[in-house]
Amino acid sequence: MLSELLQGTDTGAVLIIQDSCSYSGQHLLKSFISAALNKEEAVHVLGFDVSEEELKDGLTASTQRLHFHSAYTDPLGWTNRTAFTVHQFCVEELTHLLKQTSHPKPVTLVIDSLSWILRHVSPPAVCKTLQQLKKGGAVRAVIGLLHADMHQRGTVGSVCHLATSVITVAPGTKGDEAVAKITKRSKSGKVMQDEEIFSIKGDFSVTVVSKTSHAGHRQTEPEEHQTDPTANLTFNIRLSDTEREAKEKLALPFVFSKEKKTALLQSGPGSGRILYEPDANDDYDQEDPDDDLDV
């Protein structure tokens, strides 16, 4: 589903990429920018997290249609060098910003990152702006990066409610791979969930390594980690029904059954009698060891 999302998004789509400290969603965001540029779309980036150089670094597609609105150098207006401050994050300012460049093509707005805005603008205001952008028609799609571990769960939840698609990225088990949990809401109201393992190449193309359905993944995971100790045994530890029957019939040597008891206690005549013939040598006096000497 990830490549599907990269290929094309419907009009009025809001896509949120959620990441955390352990895996940065920046690379996937760049993949989306690169994919949008390859589709001949105009991309406007509202950059808080990274500088323009860093964002454009490695993007092979022509960056002519990439418009970077730098909120990185001065997001709060401390140094008066600003192109865009965080407090300007509202529909009027954004549409004004998008109209500065004329292009007939549909516009994709990339917000890098929503976390920066949410730290300074109240969550309801951010949600309202996102909703207006979604409905307004000034942009075709909004793609936002959200550092989910920086906000309260409620804030993350309400922002993700607005989104038509949410991609949560987490580190994979090996090397360059990462896991993406995708939730997609179609216009009909159907919700699709999927989990995919992907890797991002040097030119920001995304390769889906394997797909794991949500339930299936959960089941296979523990088996991989807990190696079965009974896997390669040289003997059989399971019993068939006949074997079990035979086992249950067998009387164990230490169990005293009635028959066994009587057999042991009532000795038959002539068996087990002790015969004793007194011997002179057996009559040994402890107190006088020299008794037998003829002194």
């Binding site: 400290c21 940065s24 997290d49 976390s115 550092h147 571990d149 920086m150 906000h151 309260q152 769960r153 804030t155 993350v156």
Partner: peptide, 18 residues
């Protein structure tokens, strides 16, 4: 600590992102 707005843990997370 559920993204609560204070404390060194939260600061560490924020700086890690940067």
């Amino acid at each position: 600590d559920d993204g609560s707005d204070e404390g060194s843990e939260w600061l560490l997370k924020g700086l890690t992102h940067q």
